[in-house]
């Protein structure tokens, strides 16, 4: 029994850190632009596909392919912002939101047309292959790497935000975009950087996701995207550490639902959204969220 519970907790931790990585992207974009970037889940898919092509079409070693894919995905995010969001930055929030949904559909269907709807098998590098076995406890090495990678990236991000000039600029934009630009800060570059960082993190999430569940298709980003969104709201959207905590809570509670209510296992996905609704009803600012229009990050 104890091993089962421990096994479930580890499973939850691993799933949760994936959600956390993706949730951070939602939260960062919301922080600076006050918009929900619904295309973020599809950016994750783009990252997974780029890594897949790097390995299988260009025959790159896995780590070269992963790094290239992560950087390229970052630029895809920047491109999306420049083409789709920047022209309507001062329009109403609803227009931005609808544009984001449009970008999401565009990316999904573009990849469907280009690469077809049949799932592709994601090649797994040998070092991600193993399973550690202790007593009745089984730990696929990917589920150990995932939380570590998530933690390291979170730390790096928090460092950038709080100890660099650009990080300060981001936090300042989150407070007041107009005043920040009056201070002579190039707001466009900083926003691009936010999209770059967020999208790269989504790519890392997508690659780790595909390494754990090695079947990729153009619609693969929808579910992780929506769940990460729920996690970001749970943690308090706009707050980076909150997003990470929200992701972990979501991942672990999903697993516990299956463990304690086996007959509800089929509704595991619905649980994330139930949680989202409850948070919105009772504590709309989430766990770490502060007064809504003031502080960010």
């Amino acid at each position: 029994m104890l091993t089962t519970v421990l096994q479930q907790l580890i499973n939850g931790l691993s799933a949760g850190s994936l959600y956390a990585l993706v949730a951070i992207g939602y939260t960062m974009v919301y922080g600076v632009l006050r918009m929900i970037n619904f295309a973020h889940g599809d950016i994750l898919m783009v990252g997974a596909y780029l890594a897949f092509f790097g390995i299988s079409a260009f025959m790159l070693p896995w780590w070269v392919s992963f790094i290239t894919a992560i950087i390229l995905t970052g630029f895809v995010g920047v491109l999306v912002e420049k083409l789709a969001y920047k022209p309507i930055r001062n329009a109403s929030r609803v227009s931005l939101l609808i544009t984001a949904v449009g970008v999401s559909f565009f990316l999904e269907n573009l990849f469907l047309v280009l690469f077809g709807g049949v799932p592709k098998a994601f090649p797994i590098a040998p070092i991600f292959h193993g399973v550690l076995n202790y007593n009745q406890l089984y730990l696929p090495v990917v589920s150990i790497y995932t939380p570590i990678v998530a933690l390291v990236l979170l730390y790096m991000l928090l460092y950038i935000l709080h100890h660099t000039k650009y990080g300060m600029a981001m936090r300042s934009i989150a407070l007041d975009i107009d005043t920040t630009s009056l201070m002579g800060i190039n707001v466009d570059i900083v926003i691009s950087l936010v999209f770059f960082l967020g999208s790269s993190l989504a790519a890392v999430g997508g690659i780790l996701w595909s390494t754990q569940y090695p079947s990729i298709n153009p619609l693969m980003g929808i579910m992780p995207g929506l769940k990460a969104f729920a996690a970001a709201v749970l943690g308090g959207i706009g707050d980076v550490a909150g997003a990470a905590i929200g992701g972990l809570i979501l991942g672990i509670s999903e697993v516990l639902i299956v463990a304690f209510f086996p007959s509800l296992a089929g509704y595991k996905d619905a649980f994330a959204f139930l949680l989202l609704i409850l948070v919105l009803l009772f504590k709309p600012t989430g766990i770490m969220g502060k007064e809504l229009e003031r502080k960010r990050f």
């Binding site: 479930q8 996701w209 569940y213 463990a259 086996p262 509800l264 089929g266 595991k268």
Partner: peptide, 22 residues
């Protein structure tokens, strides 16, 4: 001896597997 449920489109089955094992 055991029954568990999944949903089309899900990819993480670790919880269901852990519940089948005992």
């Amino acid at each position: 001896v055991a029954k568990t449920f999944i949903q089309t489109g899900e990819s993480n089955f670790s919880a269901q597997i852990a519940s089948l094992k005992p």
